[in-house]
C-alpha cells in the first residue's frame, strides 16, 4: 500500500517529466499558454467524475465492474490500452531525449531498450517500489531544477508575448498536450493501492491537488523558458534543457547534464508508472471473484 503523499509525488513527477522530456510543440505567443491551460482544463474536466468518485476512496474500475461486468471490462481495457500506448510513447521520447541531450554517440534503439527494461523492472516492483523511487527522484529533480532556476536568474527578462490566432495550430497543440496527461488514468488505477485513512476526502483531495500542481508546474516551466530564451523558445527542441545550458554557478557549469540525467530517469519512472497502472486496471477488471463455499452447519 502507498500513502497519499507518495501518490501525489509520483503523479507530479510523471507530469513534470513529460513537460520537460517531450519535444516542444508550443510557440512564443499567448496561444502557447492558452493551449497548455486549455489542455490542462479539458483533462481536468474529463477526469472530474473520477476525482469526485475517488473522494470516497473507492476503486473506480472495480465499482464500474460491480454494476456492469461488460462496461467494466470495456472501460478497463480501453484505459489499459491508452496507458500502454502512453508508456510506449514516453519510452520512445525519453530514449530520444537522453540520446540527444546526454549520450550523443549512443544508438537510440539501445537507449529505448534500456528505458523499456528499466520500466519493466520498476513496474515489477509494484506500487510501493514505484512510489518510493518516484518520491526520491522528485526530490532530486526539484533540487537540481531549483539550482538551475536560481543560476538562470540573471538571464531571465520580462518579455511581451505577441498575441496569436486560435487556429488549427492551436487545436493541434491542445490535442498534443492532452496526450501527455495520462496521470489521471494512472490516478484512477492506483486508487486501490492507496492506504485507507479515516478521513474519506483523502484520495480526492490528492487528485485535486495534483490537478492544481500540474497546471501550475506547466505554466511555471513555460514562463521560465520564455523568460530565459525569449523568441528562441519556439525554436528550441527541449527549451528547459536549452535554458539550463546558460546556468553557471562557480565551478558548476553545464548544469544541463545533471538536469538531463535526472529528468531522463524521471521519464523512465513515468514509463514504469503507466505500465504498472495498465497492469493494475487489467487486474481489477479481469479478476475473478473467489467462489465462497457454502457449508451447512
Amino acid at each position: 500500500m502507498i500513502s497519499r503523499s507518495q501518490l501525489f509525488c509520483v503523479l507530479l513527477l510523471s507530469r513534470l517529466s513529460a513537460e520537460i522530456v517531450f519535444p516542444q510543440t508550443g510557440d512564443f505567443s499567448i496561444a502557447g499558454f492558452a493551449s497548455a491551460l486549455s489542455a490542462e482544463g479539458i483533462c481536468f474536466l474529463l477526469a472530474l467524475p473520477v476525482l469526485l468518485y475517488s473522494v470516497g476512496g473507492r476503486s473506480v474500475y472495480g465499482s464500474i465492474k460491480s454494476r456492469s461486468k461488460v462496461l467494466g471490462i470495456i472501460s478497463g481495457s480501453v484505459s489499459a490500452v491508452i496507458l500502454l500506448l502512453m508508456s510506449l510513447k514516453t519510452a520512445l521520447y525519453s530514449a530520444e531525449f537522453a540520446q540527444r541531450t546526454l549520450l550523443g554517440g549512443m544508438s537510440g534503439a539501445v537507449m529505448f531498450v534500456l528505458v523499456a527494461l528499466f520500466a519493466l523492472y520498476s513496474a515489477g516492483k509494484g506500487a510501493e517500489g514505484i512510489a518510493r523511487a518516484g518520491a526520491l527522484i522528485l526530490v532530486a529533480g526539484a533540487v537540481i531544477t531549483l539550482v538551475v532556476v536560481v543560476a538562470d536568474i540573471p538571464h531571465i527578462h520580462v518579455r511581451e508575448l505577441p498575441g496569436a490566432e486560435l487556429d488549427d495550430v492551436f487545436v493541434r497543440q491542445v490535442v498534443e498536450r492532452m496526450m501527455r496527461c495520462g496521470e489521471y488514468l494512472a490516478f484512477a488505477a492506483l486508487l486501490p493501492y492507496v492506504r485507507p485513512k479515516e478521513d474519506s476526502l483523502g484520495c480526492g483531495a490528492t487528485g485535486f491537488l495534483f490537478a492544481l500542481s500540474s497546471a501550475a508546474g506547466t505554466v511555471l516551466i513555460m514562463l521560465f523558458n520564455i523568460g530565459v530564451l525569449g523568441e528562441f523558445t519556439a525554436s528550441a527542441e527541449y527549451p528547459f534543457i536549452a535554458s539550463a545550458q546558460l546556468a553557471d554557478i562557480a565551478l558548476f557549469k553545464r548544469l544541463d547534464g545533471f538536469l538531463g540525467a535526472i529528468w531522463s530517469l524521471a521519464a523512465a519512472m513515468r514509463c514504469a508508472l503507466l505500465l504498472f497502472s495498465a497492469y493494475a486496471v487489467v487486474r481489477v477488471v479481469f479478476e475473478r471473484k473467489k467462489k465462497t463455499e457454502r457449508r451447512s452447519i
Partner: peptide
C-alpha cells in the same frame, strides 16, 4: 549566440 538567434526570430 542566444541573443542573436532570439533577436532574429523576434
Amino acid at each position: 549566440l542566444l541573443d542573436v538567434l532570439a533577436d532574429d526570430m523576434g
